[in-house]
């Protein structure tokens, strides 16, 4: 995984609540057997019409917006466990998603792909959305080490939580899989003990 410490970027506002993973990447695009190309179909049915023409009203198609940060309504990433949703977001170029609430599985999937979910208060989210909509050139700075998000040139800033272990992984680009493989001896010992005690 690529290390991630800080980011300064413009942001896309997407003030829709309960954005589920079927919207992020519809099921019909899950037939691929690698992780490539999902970014092309990110938010496919909102982004394109039935004739595959870009929908000019959708934020990703508005030329005034750009950047690697997506700011979205509450309960982002609910629904299916498809990691393809995280691959679609990173494939498009996003590094950070800001919302007032994230679904569990999505949050884990995002972190396993170096995509940082930043959870902020509902009032901060609304203020941030307003600021970006008012001025699409607004720059947002996200710092993993200090766990702070600030809107450059404004008073808007907030801290955010991140699991200390996941923070270390993100800053150093470590994956869980490396850690778990290093635990093979402990896992094998656990299996032997479990066999004796007959739990499950």
């Amino acid at each position: 995984m690529e290390a991630f410490k800080t980011l300064i970027s413009r942001a896309f506002p997407l003030p829709i609540e309960h954005i589920d993973t079927d919207q992020i990447i519809p099921a019909r695009f899950l037939k691929a057997t690698d992780k490539k190309g999902f970014g092309d179909n990110l938010f496919r049915d909102w982004r394109y019409d039935n004739n595959d023409q870009p929908n000019p009203d959708f934020v990703l198609n508005k030329t005034e917006y750009s950047g690697q940060i997506l700011v979205a309504g509450t309960n982002f990433g609910c629904g299916s466990s498809r990691e393809h949703a995280a691959w679609a977001l990173t494939g498009f170029g996003f590094k950070v998603i800001v919302s007032s609430f994230f679904a569990d599985i999505f949050k884990g999937n995002a972190l396993n792909n170096g995509l940082l979910p930043v959870q902020v208060s509902e009032s901060f989210l609304q203020a941030l959305l307003q600021q970006i909509q008012k001025d699409p050139t607004t720059l947002v700075r996200v710092d993993v080490e200090t766990q702070r998000l600030e809107v450059i040139g404004t008073d808007l800033s907030t801290g955010f939580d991140i699991d200390p272990y996941k923070k270390t992984c993100l800053i150093n680009g470590y994956d869980d899989i490396d850690y778990l493989v290093s635990k093979h001896a402990a896992i094998t010992a656990f299996e032997a003990k479990k066999e004796q005690t007959l739990t499950a």
Binding site: S81, E83, I105, N109, D176, I177, L180, I187
Partner: peptide, 14 residues
Amino acid sequence: IGTSQVAQVFASQS
């Protein structure tokens, strides 16, 4: 679980 975790369980049953 997500696919990264599928790989983790493949690699460690944990």
